[in-house]
């Protein structure tokens, strides 16, 4: 019985990110045609470069959906890359390196979760503090020195390798999005995260263990950012404390662009992927256009504001 018209409006808001994506893509394709923006190699390059942010955004959808925020993802990735490179240097064991990274990431997520659920800190402040602490740890562990990784197998699997023309980084992204999509849309955990963010009291009154849900989303975020750190390490064939600087903002922007609300309770997995790629595409285009890094930063910031404003407008239209 619902009208076609009102359905269309709702669809519009849901698909805003895709519309923005297409418009921005066409825009760059036209003005950067000569610089090879639409070149398949360049396009694959964009996907490769955004892999880490994309993967962290998988967890970001759960985190924002549950009404939380995780600012530690960037520094988690850096510390994880340090751990991976140091363990590979000492032992050469890839398995051990991965286990240690994930354990570290989940551990940080666990601390974040405890700060939020036990000490009742707001997630923003809890993870802001942890972000600094973990970044400091990554600097301190080698006194800011980079640690090279000479283990070729590791580098191939987690960074530099290709299968056909496709980078392994892209393949990892695909794997995580398939898993993320299924868990988010097809399991009760996804729904319970959204209920927690949508109305925590009502979720609790419905018998949902909201504190446990929050713990899980932070741990998931920790695990995926640690994995992103492994990918940074593989791609750069080293561990460096500065990896992932500012990624927390990119992740939030990507997830919000993808249709999530900062207030919690909404979000879309595919939207987040498109949001991440959109941001990667913009940075790539700005580099091709020959902007200085200072100029890039300015334009990037403005574009994020414009894109989020656009999708907000579409949401507001729906309400009336």
């Amino acid at each position: 019985m619902q009208s076609k018209e009102s359905k269309k409006k709702i669809q519009l808001s849901k698909y805003m990110v895709y519309i923005v994506f297409v418009i921005v893509f066409i825009f760059f394709a036209i003005i950067l045609n000569k610089k090879g923006f639409v070149n398949p190699t360049n396009l694959l390059n964009i996907l490769r470069q955004t892999a880490m942010v994309s993967i962290m955004a998988v967890a970001g959808v759960f985190v924002l959906g549950a009404g939380q925020i995780d600012l530690t993802v960037g520094s988690n990735a850096a510390m994880s890359a340090m751990i991976a490179s140091l363990i590979l240097q000492e032992t050469g064991s890839i398995i051990l390196a991965i286990i240690a990274c994930l354990a570290f990431g989940i551990g940080i997520g666990c601390i974040n979760g405890l700060l939020v659920t036990r000490l009742r800190l707001p997630a923003f402040l809890a993870t802001l503090g942890m972000m600094q602490a973990v970044r400091g740890l990554a600097m301190w562990i080698t006194n800011t020195a980079a640690v090279p990784i000479s283990n070729n197998t590791f580098n191939q699997i987690f960074g530099t390798g290709f299968i056909g023309p496709i980078s392994v980084l892209i393949l990892w992204t695909i794997v995580f999005y398939i898993l993320g999509y299924i868990v988010f849309n097809k399991t009760t955990f996804g729904k319970h995260s959204l209920a927690t963010g949508g109305n925590e009291t009502a979720a609790r009154y419905s018998g949902i263990r909201v504190d446990r849900i929050k713990m899980y989303v932070f741990m998931l975020s920790g695990a995926l950012s640690a994995f992103a750190g492994i990918l940074y390490a593989g791609r750069m064939q080293s561990g460096r404390y500065s990896f992932g600087d500012g990624d927390e903002m990119s992740v939030i922007a990507a997830v919000v662009l993808g249709g999530a609300s900062m207030a919690g309770g909404t979000g879309s997995m595919i939207g987040a992927l498109v949001g991440s790629i959109l941001m990667g595409m913009i940075s790539n285009a700005l580099i091709l256009a020959g902007l200085t890094s200072a100029q890039q930063k300015i334009v990037n910031g403005l574009i994020i504001i414009a894109a989020v404003a656009l999708s907000n407008l579409a949401q507001r239209r729906k309400k009336n």
């Binding site: 097809k186 009760t188 209920a195 009502a202 949902i208």
Partner: peptide, 26 residues
């Protein structure tokens, strides 16, 4: 209620874990 969610999500919120396939999928 979770006001921003659908009628459907709200109606099954307390029992969503009960309606699953293989205990995992909705």
């Amino acid at each position: 209620l979770v006001l921003i969610h659908s009628v459907r999500e709200n109606a099954i919120l307390p029992v969503s874990t009960r309606y699953t396939k293989n205990k995992i999928f909705n």
